[in-house]
Design a protein around this nucleic acid. Structure first.
Lengths: 344, 344
DNA sequence: TTGTAGGCGTTATCAA
DNA sequence: TTGATAACGCCTACAA
């Protein structure tokens, strides 16, 4: 409750009886300042509750030690987990993370790019690779390096992720090996979301390879909530002959589907099998536990941080790092009913 | 791939053949600039890929239109939900949100306060009220207004939240009204977490009021994961005579407890009742659905934004806004077993 | 309506 | 080891 104004370097310098240069040095390279002076300065800093102004600092030093991340939504356990380790890795390098969200909207993503660029982000983490050329062009123009995560991208750019399509295909192959022929899918919204689109394509390709016509694989897109998953499940379960397995684009949709199945009086996996994708904690808590694809989020966040740091330092980097996924077999995938299902 | 350096106001001015002042005006108060000039300038902005530098801008204008939020963890659906609406409300006022996390560590929270203060946050959203005096003192010294959310705080300060203690007590009263006498609790970690502590106290006070000795109400603290909830449930279910109901500090712990109950072959609610707190989406998906306390996160985030904006504008504000909670009765709370339970 | 010029808080260069 | 002082990119009186 002393003086109310925000203290500046000048205030500290005056209080400590030194020049602003010395105060600055105390903060940035303390060993260049002799101990007694330094102690006096630090006491003044403490006493005044001084915190360096980021703007001034960035302006003068031309660096910010800041990296930004733009994720589709915070409302999603999956990105949260990956970001957490991304941030941890970053802070080991003394970098601060700024998080923004795009709401799955490319225009908003672009806005956030400008916000983060304006705030001096030295580099950016983006999710996936589906975005207008103009957005990436913008970053290149400003010389801001960026890495895409959660998938492996296309021709150019830097990526840390996994092959969503291949992983989904492998899971579908396993489903088919269980004897299923009447597959259905609850996909995430594929618009500007390469992860969702790739997973769907993976399932489709495996089905086609097994001689299942594309028209015989109903796909419903659903947003990222239990409710949407349940609603989609309702649609699919109305189809005759009923699908014997529903493959879901992510675990949240899968759990919503499980709930709907229960409501409909369908036993999982006896009456209908269900699979997920991501292996979030939730997958191990539902009953039966969810058969899904494990994505090592922490490892991905970590690797993304390493890659971005290297890009910022202009050190040599691999263009893409593939994180292996694994199919986790639990209880929701079984053989199809042999009675031919509920005929229509 | 033209020139690589980050364009400045000067570059734009030169490209458009005007002064920097005019460019600045185009960006900040376009109506002060005549149309032809403005168009020429905006084209130059576009062509160069110019984005104003936040540091320079903040320095010169002495405002940032930024507010910060420090939450315990991003790894928690509950804060994510509230933050989302906080952010939405903020952006309607043209403010940008900077999010930081403290990991439930007061020292780290303090660090983040300094980071956000340095970055020019005009105001701060904090969670709860349990923090060292020195932290709030720091903010006051810098003249940074802040509001606490998720609880109602103490003597002074501004808060948007609810009475965790009273809500937990009401739920406990309902539990007792169902006939339960052998209560147990899985509490969140109470260290520097007033929400967790208050909820525990609420249950305890209701139990005492019903003549249940404090010693007869076992409480196990557990961190915020399904696993921790399950582990705690294991401990509680080993007690003889076995508790007939386990009240949990949040829904995540409750779902972990449900899973453990299933593993132990205990039916919910026949063998043991379970209650949660928060009413996250998950609560409606488990089987049976979770009896819990609904907390209107979106409303809270919204109200917090309104309050903070007013504080920043130095408009008059109520010191605390209480958001009502509601008990949601679903399937996990039933009467206790009448056979006297599994005796020891 | 537009331009000129000073200053915001910090760092970094150069002397002392 | 320390101190002057000139940038850094932008905004905003004030002047034209």
């Amino acid at each position: 409750m002393t003086d109310t104004a925000k203290p500046t370097l000048d205030d500290v310098a005056r209080a400590a009886g030194v020049s602003t240069a010395t105060v600055s040095r105390c903060l940035n390279s303390p060993d260049q300042v002799i101990a007694p002076t330094r102690i006096r300065v630090m006491q003044a800093v403490e006493a005044l509750g001084y915190t360096p102004d980021f703007g001034g600092r960035a302006l003068a030093s031309r660096r910010t030690n800041t990296v930004g991340a733009i994720i589709p939504t915070m409302d999603n356990a999956i990105f949260a987990r990956g970001l957490q380790s991304f941030q941890e890795a970053l802070s080991r390098f003394g970098k601060t993370l700024l998080v923004a969200s795009s709401n799955y909207d490319p225009a908003r993503e672009r806005e956030q790019m400008e916000v983060l660029a304006g705030r001096g982000a030295d580099g950016l983490l983006l999710i996936g690779s589906a975005r207008p050329e103009s957005s990436t062009e913008y970053l290149r123009r400003r010389g801001i390096p960026f890495v895409g995560a959660w998938n492996l991208g296309g021709e150019d750019g830097y990526f840390v992720g996994f092959d969503n399509r291949a992983a989904a295909a492998r899971l579908a192959e396993m489903v088919i090996a269980h004897g299923h022929r009447r597959l259905a899918m609850i996909a995430g919204i594929s618009f500007m979301n390469d992860r969702a689109a790739d997973r769907t394509e993976g399932v489709r390709s495996a089905a086609e390879a097994a001689g299942i016509a594309r028209a015989d694989l109903p796909v419903v897109e659903a947003a990222y909530t239990f409710e949407d998953g349940a609603r989609a499940m309702g649609e699919l379960m109305a189809i005759r002959p009923r699908p014997t397995v529903v493959m879901c684009g992510n675990d949240v949709l899968a759990v919503g589907a499980m709930q709907k199945a229960r409501e409909l009086g369908l036993k999982v996996p006896d009456d209908v099998s269900i699979t997920g994708f991501d292996d979030i904690d939730l997958a191990g808590v539902v009953d039966p536990k969810l058969t899904t694809v494990r994505v090592p989020h922490r490892r991905m966040g970590q690797a993304a941080a390493d890659m971005l740091i290297k890009l910022i330092k202009k050190e040599p980097v691999e263009r893409r790092i593939e994180i292996p996924t694994a199919i986790i077999e639990r209880g929701t995938l079984g053989p199809p009913r042999t009675d031919g299902g509920a005929g229509g």
